[in-house]
Amino acid sequence: MAKGYVEINKKACKGCWYCVSVCPKKVLAEGDEANAKGFLTVTKANPDDCIGCGICALMCPDSALTVFKED
């Protein structure tokens, strides 16, 4: 069971990959699915490894990520 969970707002994501570069557990990965604006959006490669640190959401310029953590 993962300790954390990341919710991706595909509409807001622009595919800058800042979150992918800072994720300590490599949970996030560069995706190949485009949103309505034509930007490739981020995807979750290893969702079970998420520790809910929130660094991806801190780094995301476009507020596309929301992080939940085990209480």
Binding site: K14, G15, C16, P61, S63, L65, T66, F68, K69, D71
Partner: peptide, 26 residues
């Protein structure tokens, strides 16, 4: 029980319209 630890600030409304900055713009 999962608890939300990040919050979108009140001044940012992603439903209102589009964020027109380029990808990766700081």
């Amino acid at each position: 029980m999962m608890k939300q630890i990040t919050k979108i600030p009140a001044a940012i409304d992603l439903e209102k319209g589009s964020n027109d900055f380029c990808p990766g713009c700081l």
